[in-house]
């Protein structure tokens, strides 16, 4: 049996590499957003917003590559799934990047990201960061088991999110207008983190589809 379509195989590898690269860029944005929260570092927050343009460009470039491969190579079976997965995963990564940007915007707007909310926000953000790291590894190694584990971890995120929101709401019920506004903003930040977790779960579903060809609902 002679191997064929080397050129096409190379292009598929390139597409895959772009998705991995995009994943790392989003991961580093998330790493930075945690630092920015911790150190109230507005400069870093601005950097994240700036870098998001590059992440968006990567997504567009992945889309263009994928459409061209579909149009020109008539991919089937695992090749087709790889291209569809690249499209879907890059879309989720782009959204996760947007959540980092949203948080960055809140940081820049709020002069006071208050200490009393700091620990629980950081705690949730770090968990999302671990999920993101694990899902990127699951993707590059096409490890279904790991992908499913990551998606199961999302339940913990949801649980912690709900508990923390409750706590912040208690704080929001304050006569002090400024204080309640702080609490509201902090809840919005939490919401971004929780949504990021959902998109990581979507990525897990796409890894299962890529490897097994089966559409599953993980949540």
């Amino acid at each position: 049996m002679t191997p064929n379509r080397k050129h096409f195989m190379d292009e598929l590898d390139d597409l895959n590499a772009k998705v991995v690269k995009m994943g790392f860029e989003v991961f580093s944005s998330f790493q930075n957003i945690i630092k920015a929260i911790e150190h109230k570092d507005n400069e870093l927050a601005n950097e994240i917003m700036e870098k998001d343009k590059y992440i968006n460009e990567l997504e567009v470039s992945i889309n263009v590559d994928a459409y061209l491969l579909i149009a020109k190579q008539c991919p089937v079976a695992s090749d087709l799934r790889r291209i569809i997965s690249a499209l879907k995963i890059s879309n989720d990564l782009e959204r996760i990047g947007d959540y980092a940007v949203n948080i960055a915007k809140y940081l820049v707007k709020t002069k006071t990201f208050v200490d009393r909310f700091l620990d629980s926000t950081i705690s949730l953000a770090k968990k999302v960061l671990v999920m993101l790291e694990d899902i990127l590894e699951a993707f590059s190694k096409e490890n279904v088991e790991k992908a499913i584990n990551v998606s199961e971890f999302d339940e913990k995120i949801d649980k912690e999110y709900k508990e923390t929101v409750k706590l912040f709401i208690q704080n929001a019920k304050s006569d002090d207008e400024e204080k309640s506004e702080e609490a509201m903003r902090s809840i919005l930040v939490l919401k971004q983190l929780e949504r990021a977790g959902d998109h990581i779960t979507n990525i897990a579903e796409n890894i299962v589809y890529l490897v097994n060809g089966k559409r599953v609902e993980l949540d």
């Binding site: 049996m1 064929n4 695992s78």
Partner: peptide, 10 residues
């Protein structure tokens, strides 16, 4: 089958 339809050989 996969190898054939994806053009891996043939």
């Amino acid at each position: 089958t996969e190898d054939y339809i994806t053009g891996r050989f043939g």
